[in-house]
Design a protein around this nucleic acid. Sequence first.
DNA 1: AATTAGCACTCACTGTTTGAGAGTGCTAAC
DNA 2: GTTAGCACTCTCAAACAGTGAGTGCTAATT
Lengths: 341, 341
Amino acid sequence: MALTERKLRILEAIIRDYIESAEPVGSRSLSKKYELGVSPATIRNEMSDLEEMGFIQQPHTSAGRIPSDKGYRLYVDKLMEIKQTANKNRVRIRSDILKKYGELEQLLEYTSRVLSEFTQYTSIVLAPQVKKSRLKQIQLARLSDETMLAIFITNTGLIQNPIFKIPADMKHEELEKISNFLNEEFAGSTLEEIEVRMADNLKKELAKFHNTVYALLPEMFKALEQVSDVTLYLSGTTNIFNFPEFNDLAKARSFLNLLEERKTISELISRQDSDYLNVSIGTENKIQEAKECSIVTTTYSLDQQTVGQLSIIGPTRMDYDRVMSVLSQVSKMMNQILKEQ
Amino acid sequence: MALTERKLRILEAIIRDYIESAEPVGSRSLSKKYELGVSPATIRNEMSDLEEMGFIQQPHTSAGRIPSDKGYRLYVDKLMEIKQTANKNRVRIRSDILKKYGELEQLLEYTSRVLSEFTQYTSIVLAPQVKKSRLKQIQLARLSDETMLAIFITNTGLIQNPIFKIPADMKHEELEKISNFLNEEFAGSTLEEIEVRMADNLKKELAKFHNTVYALLPEMFKALEQVSDVTLYLSGTTNIFNFPEFNDLAKARSFLNLLEERKTISELISRQDSDYLNVSIGTENKIQEAKECSIVTTTYSLDQQTVGQLSIIGPTRMDYDRVMSVLSQVSKMMNQILKEQ
DNA sequence: AATTAGCACTCACTGTTTGAGAGTGCTAAC
DNA sequence: GTTAGCACTCTCAAACAGTGAGTGCTAATT
């Protein structure tokens, strides 16, 4: 069966209406509300076809139709056009974020908040991946007789301070020497590059330092990598209560449970490198508990390198136009802000 | 009317039963389940008295009784004895926390998780207050032409890295000099002490440095104070769904909303200095949305100084015995771990 | 005087019934 | 190919009755 122009228009109307109302859409109300130029009976016939093709479905025999995941997919890929958020809003987003900008963490947290407030869904912001950041500066500082603090500052504004044990007999000057050496050697490199160099020829050069340093280095970089790979900022989790499809306690609970574990979240928002908007609809999600949700994800970059992600999660009945528009704008702004730094 | 021994025993039985079952307790089931040595009719009379005194109440005429906030208060203050969690559990808590100990942040996050898992309620862990910490070390590092990073390390293990603008013409050596000066001058002091000294005689000594340093210092310490005063770790927020009193969407929502804003949380868990267990029951809470919750709070300390807080929040029908026992043990352990550092 | 048995009464809760409303699919007419 | 008409389906909300747990009161018992 062919997807005629008229079928597409009807499908679009159904999806628009359902996104707005959350109620199954009937033929009569459809013909009244939208100028389709045909009678309810005709719409019924078309709807019957659309159902057969899998784009819409009936909750029960005598109800209207609701879009299926396949329907939303078609809508997102072909029918929808991303609205340009009105200029006023755009400016407001911009200055809102800038106003609060201090450290990276605050920027991320605030971005997350802005995203959830603007979309009214739940937002997830992933901090820059350390792997892809360049080390800007390394500092070592003694904390106590047996511990030292390593400070890593990256080009993304990420600051990490892992703590390590060191031998009590290591002198202050020695620490400083090592610190200088590390800076000369590694500043400007990514972790990936460092790994390669570590495996290579570095061993000899390190030999001139205290033995433990050599043992410590891999540990240091590993710690750096691990800690921040899971750093994320959530906002608007309770917005889920605004949606009738989660009016069921079990569903609301399952959604919130999903978000309570970092591990599940990062499974959900699998790292992506493409810098365009990625949409995962309902059953396209791998995790069982998210089969009634849609997730829209985009990235933000620094130096042409994708470093982190911005996501919105909500019901499959999501206002894709708006969400995608807000996400793409906020992403552009983050790119700019990070560049300005 | 006097609170006879028998009345107290009946009240205790009612509270115990209600904490367990969440169902209004009737006279007949009470006499069957507990060995009170009197008939249901007698219990009814006593219950009627207890209600008149305000310790219990009826949801409606023909239902059993449930404890009032006043009843819980009496129970917590007079009737209850804090159970000693079985030794096995105690050891498990201990090694669990220690195993994960790396940085302070991880310790706090993990403590929060352990608390919520052991109690099955929601836990809130407040990071050490900077005001009460002693500065251990200060480091300044240039980030770019116009920005520098200040690193503050406190005796509580707290590390903060605020970023500041500095004049482009400030030289590396100058920064190092200032850094050394600050360390000599302030290491070992609390922020409160520093404030006093700043107001005092410090101006002259600072004069020998670059002018901007003088302007920067107050800002630096203020930033330090502000940021971390609101740092908190939440865990087990969705446990609320396990309790029938929150089976109502509106109530669950209002509870979760309460926890989404840091500001409300810190209002809820107002800073306290007494190092013993503090219990706030239902209407004793100032915030409207928490009038059906109870909050148990204790503190943890370093060097005889209370620095942070541990809280459990749940329904007023809370297993106070268990919660207080777990909290007091975890608090002791944190004290020990912080000391060992 | 305190306790208890007996009894009428109350009220939430559950399951059933009923009617209304929205929507469909089919058939026959346009 | 499109549409009007109609019987049919299914959810939802309101009304209703029966059940059970619990109470308060009274009178008998210890």
